[in-house]
Amino acid sequence: MAETSIKASEYEALRNNPYLRRGRLLSVVMRGILFACAALSVAITAAIIWVLVSESWIFFKQVPLLAFLTDTHWTPVFTDAHYGILPLLTATFWAAGIAMAVATPLGLALSIYLSEFARPNLRETLKPILEMLAAVPTVVFGYFALLFLTPLARQFIPGLSGFNLLVPGFVMGIMILPYIVSISEDAMRAVPMSLREGAFALGMSRWRMSMTVIIPAAFSGVTAAFLLGFARAVGETMVVAIAAGQNPNLTADPREGAATITAYIVQMSLGDLPHGSLAYSTIFAAGLVLFLITLAFNVIGFFLRKRFREAY
């Protein structure tokens, strides 16, 4: 009895020890601060949506949504102003589509090669190199597209103009390649070894095994890689702003130049945009469209990626 009361008093003393008390207080305060840091990311998303929607609201009060979606001309700063997003949208999809046409076969081949064929040593050296390439500034890729590849390509492709969608699309394809390869290779490597061993025991070659076992098993992860890559290409700015020209142009010919959504935003930001004017709100309306497109692809990619993580 006496003993426990001593222990209780010791316990009280410990509880009231100012040093320990400060420590506990700090711990609680830090928990709050860390939570605030994490919650900030939600605040950023909320702020992005709020800015885009509220500024676009001003735009859509003056331009009907139907005209925005169906008008085939985008001339917001002309006296005869048209606000049809179609030219910007088609140019964006042309460029991103060409990028994917380049990146899909190359990316698949590279990730299968790295995950199934290459020796571990080679893989370990190549992955950091690929990661480094992902860090090359996009403006440098733009320089390469406009001043090196376009003059080169004009010798082989007749009718290719100085600004065009073809070359920047191609360069974007190479640019997003490290990103796509890194995700899809991760997905392929997450396929359990036993599946590979089973396939080999059936007498499959590595190639058959990759095609009939690895790709189906890693399908959601690989698809996610390409969707995320596509979202990157759609949102990519500097390459198209530099090499695809800044002239909104509804075209079915990728040899012509045409401004993408991102290039339009850059072009308008470079000029003097009076705050509150309709021209100012057009960049937010264009940004909202861009945001919605990339969001859709990112969300689908996110859930597919999550699925491949859970599957094994």
């Binding site: 990311s41 939600v42 950023i44 998303t45 702020a47 992005i48 800015v51 885009l52 509220s54 500024e55 995320l228 979202a231 990157r232 759609v234 949102g235 990519e236 700015t237 991102t262 935003i265 850059v266 930001s269 960049i283 937010f284 940004g287 861009l290 945001f291 990339t294 969001l295 692809f297 990112n298 969300v299 990619g301 996110f302």
Partner: peptide, 20 residues
Amino acid sequence: NVSNLAGVPSIIYGLLALGI
């Protein structure tokens, strides 16, 4: 949200900063 933010095009961040 964090993984979505990683996929938001950089120019959208520019618009966010411009507006706010």
